[in-house]
């Protein structure tokens, strides 16, 4: 099987989520090839898990003020602040027959690609079930998976740098809690690549590319017109709507 790799691009939250769903559907219909893609979120955005409450998790007012987008993902998991300069997200979408049948086991297999990528930078990271990757005891990557019609989608973020204050201003934590003490405790639980190695975000991308393609047959590709049209439709009519984003 030959994978298509779509290289790092910066798109808005609604497009990013719409393209993931487009691929899930089109691979099921055998219209798109199995794909590994890398992207950044521009403008910065908050994504929430499928089962989370937008009002409960996100300071929507602050997002509007700062020009930060907010979107509900197709996948479960928690709320994530995606800084436009502070992280890289990957998605891997392919028939589920390419992966272990067990969801828990397939998290481990796909997360190993991230771990291999970080190892290429000289950073030792470990998989922490259910869906995290840690450096030491601190989280550097969160991942989420769904399966639909025999196709698996997993996406995840790898933190390049961390702005805790900004993160707290858009995620719902009461103002009183954004004390130095709280920030310290997050810094004790979360880390980023740039804390461990002086590398550029492009170096991180190169290493993740290596981690995800190692041992795979692949070629670089771009979105087809049909994919862009379908993603464009979902971007406007689903992921950009209040109905979807505030459905819980």
């Amino acid at each position: 099987m030959t994978w298509r790799v779509v290289g790092l691009e910066a798109r808005d939250a609604y497009f990013n989520m719409a393209m993931d769903e487009t691929l899930l559907t089109r691979i099921k219909e055998k219209k798109s090839p199995p794909t590994i893609r890398f992207y950044r979120w521009s403008p910065s955005a908050v994504s929430i898990g499928r089962f989370q409450s937008m009002e409960g998790e996100v300071n929507v007012e602050e997002c509007r003020k700062l020009g930060v987008d907010y979107v509900r993902r197709i996948t479960g998991g928690g709320a994530v602040y995606h800084d436009s300069k502070g992280e890289i997200t990957y998605s891997i979408i392919a028939p589920e027959s390419e992966f272990p049948k067990s969801i828990r086991e397939s998290y481990k297999v796909i997360c190993q690609c991230v771990i291999d990528g970080l190892a290429n930078l000289g950073i030792e990271a470990q998989f922490a079930p259910i869906n995290d990757i840690l450096i030491g005891s601190r989280k550097v990557s969160g991942n989420a998976q769904t399966r639909r019609g025999g196709v698996l989608l997993q996406h995840g973020t790898i933190l390049y740098s961390l702005d805790v204050r900004r993160m707290f201003s858009v995620l719902k934590v009461s103002k009183e809690k954004i004390s130095d003490k709280m920030i310290k405790s997050v810094e004790e639980r979360v880390t980023s690549v740039s804390e461990h190695k002086k590398v550029s975000i492009n170096d991180l991308y190169g290493s993740l590319l290596y981690g995800f393609t190692k041992g795979k047959e692949y070629e670089f590709g771009n979105w087809s017109q049909e994919e862009l049209e379908k993603a464009g439709y979902l971007r406007i009519h689903l992921y950009g709507t209040r109905k979807w984003n505030f459905s819980r």
Partner: peptide
Amino acid sequence: VEIFGDFFIHPEESI
């Protein structure tokens, strides 16, 4: 009843 959280349920619609 509404159930919220950062868990995973597959398929998602079954919540």
